[in-house]
Amino acid sequence: MAIKDFPIEEYVLPGSAACPGCPATIALRIVLKALGKKTVMIVPACCTAVIESLYPHTSFNIPVMNIAFEAAAAGAAGVEAALRKLGKNDVTVLAWAGDGGTYDIGLQALSGALERETNFIYICYNNQIYSNTGIQRSGATPYAAWTTTTVGGKKEFRKEMGDIIRAHHIPYSAQTCISYPDDLYNKVKKAKEIEGPKYIEILTPCPPGWRFSMEKTVEMGRLAVETGVWALYECKNDVVTFNGKSRLILENKIKRVPIEEWMRPQGRFKHLFVPKKDVKRIKALEEHIEKIWERYRKYYI
């Protein structure tokens, strides 16, 4: 569906406590437009727990339950079980967590809920850091990126969450990015219609966390896809389909943009360019990304 045709109803209300240029609010606004009024959202510790604003106010026009950092999927499982018992089959249960709450501390509860075939949508909005706590490294932080806990740049490569999710063989999982609202909307809409566990991960470039100017949020997401740092794909019943530019990259119809183009505007990679270009580390990340695409081509063409 094109943006102009998205439902007019807003469930993310104006006046939230989000930072200027925040991608999480862009993402959630579109997600809730796709899911509609009959949605219960479970939010663990993450930026959204701040964005939703201070008690007794709220930025959201759907029922929301906050829960502890590692507990989003388990809390959602409880909500879903209650809905089933109450015979309310038309309500969508949405667990909405960041990458820290998904890749790291919440992974066990998420894996458990997927394995138990919980009928819910788990969305990870991935800004590649613990941003709410002030930019610390997570399992989703890319190699060489500065964070407050990887001051000289992260030494390890990020976790491949998509592979972990697909190992659960759930009916639907997808990767998308806020820079492609139609792709995001359509994936959420698709997930809504499917029974069982659904997982969607949204790349959400974070201006203060990635150290770029707030008007560049959408651009940074596009560059992530064009450089191949992030891939748009979906997996329905174990069949993986790449979408948009990621499909063209997969099929070698277009070349990936050099990774430097994505890194250079981000202050978190500044130490790789100033005072001297760190060719070795830039190359290491480039090669790592290429290896991931080789693997994608081997399995998904």
């Binding site: 219960v40 479970i42 339950m65 829960i67 502890a68 590692e70 507990a71 999927a73 388990a74 809390g75 959602a76 499982a77 409880g78 909500v79 879903e80 079980a81 209650a82 809905l83 089933r84 018992k85 109450l86 066990q108 509860a109 894996s111 458990g112 394995e115 138990r116």
Partner: peptide, 22 residues
Amino acid sequence: GEYICVESEHSAMSACIGASAM
């Protein structure tokens, strides 16, 4: 009722919290 065989006690209480909040 619904019986959720969770993967930890932390999740057991979290699921009870979710259900009870419903």
